[in-house]
């Protein structure tokens, strides 16, 4: 009969209409006041009808692997040994693998010897150009650059505000653990430790053991592990370095000449070790006074 097709179609529409309300009634209230997990079901695979999230009042948490403009991982401010220290060794791989070439790095340099040291002097990402591809995080050999979850970057001025500098890019390790616990665990497992690859090597050289990887999703637990493992005679961290999460440790200047190495990476690693030793020396001197 002519018109049956339309009627059938209208039947579908009306079902959608009622399903939406039925779901709303099922989840009423809980949507606004209930436990967060209720929402999980509402947004689940078997929900019916139309489901809407009232952005910006409501937001769906993005999945762990979600990638938005990257940030740099640094040690937490209350890290017992090297608070606020960059994980980045300024090896330059991320800037090379970046497809639109929006990462700009000034490699750290020893002021006296002019040798590269494994800390970036400056680090910029032009977020207007960044295409959120995630390569930098994927190929960084030091797990030092990570894709962020904070996607609300709108601003009034694009010319300066959108070039993120090192201070703006740096976020503590505990933040990384909080947004992507699974990935952070996988990476720590691969490194064999909750600490930076280079620190693990340094400690091995120095005859100490780094904090072995134990699965946990709580950054506080990792910090506690670090504190428990910190050398006992070591004094409290220097106030200057602890004051900011992004400031490069002041002890950097005392860096000793690095070994003869053409390979920048190798030089970087060596210099990092020197820097760590120098820091310890400086700390000792301070405590001796």
């Amino acid at each position: 009969m002519y018109g049956m097709g339309i009627l059938k179609g209208l039947g579908v529409t009306i079902r959608h209409f009622f399903e939406t309300y039925a779901e709303d009634i099922r989840y009423s209230g809980r949507r606004y006041f209930g436990a967060k997990s209720d929402f999980s079901e509402r947004q689940g695979i078997d929900t019916r009808g139309v489901y809407t999230v009232q952005y910006p009042e409501e937001k769906i948490a993005v999945p762990e692997r979600f990638r938005f403009v990257p940030f740099l991982v640094v040690n937490d401010a209350d890290h017992p040994e090297a608070p606020g220290e960059d994980w980045c060794t300024s090896c330059g791989i991320c800037s090379k693998v970046c497809p639109p070439q929006c990462i700009w790095i000034v490699r750290g340099e020893d002021p006296v010897t002019k040798r590269p040291i494994p800390q970036p002097e400056a680090f910029y990402i032009d977020t207007d150009i960044c295409m959120n591809c995630g390569y930098c995080a994927e190929f960084c050999p030091f797990d030092a650059i990570k894709m962020d979850h904070d996607y609300e970057l709108a601003s009034y001025d694009r010319t300066t505000y959108h070039i993120h500098d090192k201070a703006r890019l740096s976020k503590p390790f505990s933040y990384w653990m909080s947004i992507a616990p699974t990935t952070a665990n996988e990476e720590a497992r691969d490194r064999g430790s909750w600490e930076h690859t280079d620190v693990v090597k340094e400690k091995k050289k120095a005859g100490r053991s780094a904090i072995a990887y134990t699965p946990t999703e709580d950054p506080a637990e990792v910090l506690a592990l670090l504190k428990a493992n910190a050398p006992k005679p070591e004094p409290e961290p220097e106030p200057a370095a602890a004051s900011s999460t992004s400031a490069a440790p002041a002890a950097e200047e005392a860096s000793a000449p690095a070994a003869e190495a053409v390979d920048a990476d190798k030089a970087a690693r060596l210099a990092k070790r020197e820097a760590a030793l120098a820091r310890k020396r400086a700390a000792k001197e301070q405590s001796g006074e």
Partner: peptide, 13 residues
């Protein structure tokens, strides 16, 4: 899996 990291986040797992 999503963990809450912004205000008003609704998590999923």
């Amino acid at each position: 899996r999503s963990t809450a990291n912004l205000l008003n986040d609704r998590v999923r797992d």
